[in-house]
Simulated scan of single mutants.
Amino acid sequence: MESPMQIVSKVLPGIIAHIPQTLLYWFLPSVLALFFGALLCWARVSNRHRPLYWICTVVISFFRGTPGIVQIYIVFFGLPKLIWAIGYDVSDWTAGVYFVIATTLNLSCFMAETLRGGYLALDRGQVEAGLSIGFSRVQNFVHVIAPQTLKVALLNIKNLEIDVLKDTSVAYTIGAVEIMGYANRMISLRSGLGQLWILGTAAVIYFIMCTVLEVAFNLATRRISRFEGVSR
């Protein structure tokens, strides 16, 4: 009969080895969602493209109003058929690709609403001041709108990113192997023996990663506040 420490010592190296894959499943959707979320946000705050506004509103409502696991299954089973219908074969795509796509779509919609909230909270006087000193619309966006929007939205973005990092644990449901996928495989190979210790070990690793991410966001927030204090 193995002791808890023996079980943990056997599975811990494998769990640690899957940290890079887990971080990849978090990092790629995070970067892509920031870009696509900004585009969706622009479509929502712009009054010049009403059809685009309503299309984006429906898309955002769908992805925010349906379970993420359902979206993963829809993308995993439906996207290959859709691409096949237009003449392309993606049977060689790994499960991780579908997970990244599904997570990006989901996160983009939440990111769009987070950025929209930050934009709507902007002091319009600062925007007008940027234009009054000769900034073009692009310069005003880069130097005034984007930094101020991110500052306001940073707390909510931090919460979203922590949720996404934790949600990588469902990637194994479609065959993508990360920390939880490896832990689940070890539990199956051991016929369930020591599953609480294996799951507990995985939970501790997730907790550490989320804590590091939270600390990084908190440092970024303090740095931005300190920079603004100096600039004033």
Rank of each mutant, 00 (worst) to 15 (best):
Q6F: 01
I16P: 04
P20D: 11
P20A: 10
P20N: 07
T22Q: 04
P29N: 08
S30G: 03
A38H: 04
R44H: 08
N47M: 10
L52Y: 10
W54I: 03
I55D: 08
C56S: 12
V58L: 11
S61W: 11
S61T: 12
S61H: 06
G65A: 10
T66P: 01
G68A: 12
I69V: 12
I69W: 09
I72T: 04
A85G: 08
A85S: 15
I86Q: 00
S91R: 06
A95K: 01
V97T: 15
F99C: 04
V100Y: 00
A102E: 01
L107Q: 15
M111V: 05
M111H: 00
A112I: 05
E113G: 07
R124M: 06
E128Y: 10
A129V: 08
L131G: 15
S132V: 10
I133Q: 02
R137Y: 14
V144H: 04
A146V: 15
N156Q: 13
L160Y: 09
L160R: 01
K166H: 13
A171I: 02
A171N: 07
Y172K: 08
T173G: 07
M180Y: 06
L189P: 01
L193E: 12
G194F: 14
T201G: 09
I205M: 10
M209A: 14
M209Q: 03
T211L: 09
L213Y: 00
A216S: 13
R222S: 11
F227D: 13
V230D: 10
V230E: 15
